[in-house]
Design a protein around this nucleic acid. Sequence first.
DNA 1: ACCCCTCCGGCAATCGGTTGCAACGGATTC
DNA 2: GAATCCGTTGCAACCGATTGCCGGAGGGGT
Lengths: 345, 345
Amino acid sequence: MSHDEVLGDSDARRPTIYDVAKASKVSPSTVSRTFSKPGRVSAATADRIRRVADELEYHHVPHPRFTPTTKTGMLAVVVADLTNPFFLDIVQGARHEASMHRNTVLVIDAQESLDDEREAVGRVVPFVDGIVLAASRMREGSIRAVARQRALVVLNRPMPDVPSAVTDNARGMHLAVEHLSRLGHRTLTYLAGPEASWADSMRWRSIAEAATDHGLRVRRLGPFAPTAEGGGSAVEHYLARPTTGVVAYNDPMAMGFIEELAARGIRAPDDVSVIGFDDSFDPRFGDPVLTTVAVPHRILGRFAVQMLLGTRVAPAGRPAMLPAELVVRRSTGKPVDGAPHRLAS
Amino acid sequence: MSHDEVLGDSDARRPTIYDVAKASKVSPSTVSRTFSKPGRVSAATADRIRRVADELEYHHVPHPRFTPTTKTGMLAVVVADLTNPFFLDIVQGARHEASMHRNTVLVIDAQESLDDEREAVGRVVPFVDGIVLAASRMREGSIRAVARQRALVVLNRPMPDVPSAVTDNARGMHLAVEHLSRLGHRTLTYLAGPEASWADSMRWRSIAEAATDHGLRVRRLGPFAPTAEGGGSAVEHYLARPTTGVVAYNDPMAMGFIEELAARGIRAPDDVSVIGFDDSFDPRFGDPVLTTVAVPHRILGRFAVQMLLGTRVAPAGRPAMLPAELVVRRSTGKPVDGAPHRLAS
DNA sequence: ACCCCTCCGGCAATCGGTTGCAACGGATTC
DNA sequence: GAATCCGTTGCAACCGATTGCCGGAGGGGT
């Protein structure tokens, strides 16, 4: 991480108090005091200095002895996609907890891009007291490197020896499969999310295990983008070999999937049962309202900030585990006779 | 804005390279090189220094000659409420444009709180190259003070002599009223948003004008919180003296209003026509899908960043004006006979 | 034995704004 | 006329990490 990568070039240099001092024939300290100690400089000289400063386009920014060791009261929260309400909730939780301790949260939307994430983290690291990576796509090595520089908490991705918190994906997936099994489903499809995501591989592994436990068959489809669009694009592949039950990597995918099905005249839960993950949508919206595995998003964000600020001690060495539960709403039901075969195109 | 307000107290001082140097009996420069110039220091000394640093809990942060004049490649976007998709879109537009110029966007959610906004802006200002205030609640004086320090763009609030962009609220409101008038509505209610918001007073003024032009009567209700909850809480007051047409300060309020009505057995558009503002919701969701005044959110964000980076020159002295249009969806229709009187409780 | 080159660590300057201390000059007071 | 005081300004140190330059130590070649 070289100089130029971190900070932009300073070719278009702004003027300094020294320039202003020279131009107005006073010492730099007088210029400094003009701006930062009102009244400490005579009105006449202050006026003169201000005029010169305006001319030179010197803009004064309060510069309270910022050194690499001073605390700034700012925390960065890096998310993969701000338009996913799941992350929005994490941010809200973090923000709330931070403001209780008079800290400011800076949100960074990495847009699922590894490069953007790395660059943003590199830029922000010298200026914040701590960092929350809410769903990092970075390599473990890079994350550890950051952790050596600043207080860091990783969410939704377990990392030994780095403070981290995850939700109990295995249990959540188990509940989902059990629910589908009880309803009478025998074949499932898993709509996979980003391959770089720990949660995705964890969820796939868990659904496979749970399916075996319940004597069901499950198939993996994807990867797709973890968005409504991604879910929609899964439909075509799905219809080649449909199943009565579908579990998506996350809620936006599940919703996009249901919509695209509806556009083709296939309805949930009548023809297909669909389960999402994260409980990220406001249950007042959507049709049908999505059955989903709920994780305590807001608490995750709160947790992370508490760990950063030292309010809560992280369990040493291993990630904290938060519970998951199944929220049964109206996108799941009993499979109809003949389905899914009548769907096959 | 004093020292202590801007940066947190530094009582819990972190160790410096000087501490490490003293403890490992080398000069500070050697410590510096150990971390920032790999290979420049012999493996033996480097190891020793690293061990001492670990012991003292010195964490090295690359510190690329940061001075008040260096550009950091970071831009701050301050929004009033991140959970409002309207702001989310502005952020996306800003983010996209910024990343095209290799800049990073830091999002700050002020949660409609003046204090939080002021504090956050004060903290972030020394470290960013520019700031976008997407819906500031701050006083004009404070905003101007910030503008003197850093490149600044104000959105949704016109400010003479400060670069700003607004949407054509008057025209948008005119279209909304015209639409309702054509459908046959004769009485309207405006659900007001935050009083500190310029957009709110502008929208109220515009609807009053437009109503006069079309010979309608309009009443103002509020202020309410600019959220779904706020809209819901408006219902009670509304029902005391209902009208057939309702225009809300923004979309979340309109949605919350419709929901709460539905909970009481009153349906839009059958019993009441409701229009929102901003077109912030994904039209795939919601029931009924909201008729709303659409403003080009994403373009606003893009615009702002272009003005910050100097890619686009702002019209001097006065705010740039972006067009608004009416998106007719399904929350508006002809008023039924007898309505609204049969609603009166 | 001499020269040269490389490797390594230290000295000191630098960045830009802040601040403790001292000096200066005019006005007031004895 | 000298002592005192206060408001104003300048000098120089400081913050913490980086970096150009230099010099000493050690190795290899002739």
